[in-house]
Amino acid sequence: MTALVLLDHADGRITPAARSAVTAAAALGEVHVLVTGAAIGAVAEAATRIAGVAKVLRADAEIYDKALAEPLAALLVRLAPAYDHVLAAATATGKNVIPRAAALLDVQPISEIVAVVDAETFVRPIYAGNALATVRSTDARKLITVRAANFDAAAAEGGSATIEEVEAGEATPAVSRFVSTELSTSDRPDLASARVVISGGRGMQNGENFKLIEPIADALGAAIGASRAAVDAGYVPNDYQVGQTGKIVAPDLYVAIGISGAIQHLAGMKDSKVIVAINKDAEAPIFQVADYGLVADLFAALPELQAELAKAS
């Protein structure tokens, strides 16, 4: 069996999410990757070196430049007959393209898988991750998006794939046209999509003390969040709130400062990859979910943390 992975890349680099999709595909058979865009020679070159990739298909043409769904889906539909599985990371591009291609192939896509059981059986979260469904596809061909956090990224080096050119599709009268992108320029990443989140709770005691968190957030490139207790107490605005009634986040690293860990808060961050808790109450429920817990007075620990991060990072 052979699987084709639509490879995400940005600024000339293959994203780690795309390499996670390669790992998922490797569990299904031989892996070919499809690199699309305009002037993407270097990216395709890099793709040949990803561990586990047997062949790189390169579709180098202007119409693929902005990864618009319409031409990319048409390209996948053309290539799909040679493959049993077509995958992409569940990124903005993957989620945009895969279902469209699936519909054109008369296939029900399988979104955001977190595990491969066998060639036709996959595990995927439903109800915002509050349940995991194991589903089996009866379609002859499977179209899949992959939740990157659940698969280790394939090594960027170590492979030696060959490159095969793919003919670009016809530039049919375009129904959609790229206008512009506006990447977040704010110093702080968006809470909902940040790779690192650092949140303060009632233990911060007032809004002024949130300033202690800022330099640490700067050092980590983190977004700042808060528990509902801190929001209710008026320390920070409502849009900082992480939790059941606030934002649901799942960063690589979540740092909870002075947060007791009420279940309403846990509901908003429990899917984080690594959770750190700093709290002076050793019995605080947050420690039940923390990978690393530090029982300490946060007013002593925060300046120390700031100093420690400044050292040899």
Partner: peptide, 16 residues
Amino acid sequence: DRLSSVYLSNTNHEEN
């Protein structure tokens, strides 16, 4: 505890 209990009552109010 109380909070994990309230959680199971599916209680919510529009915050604002």
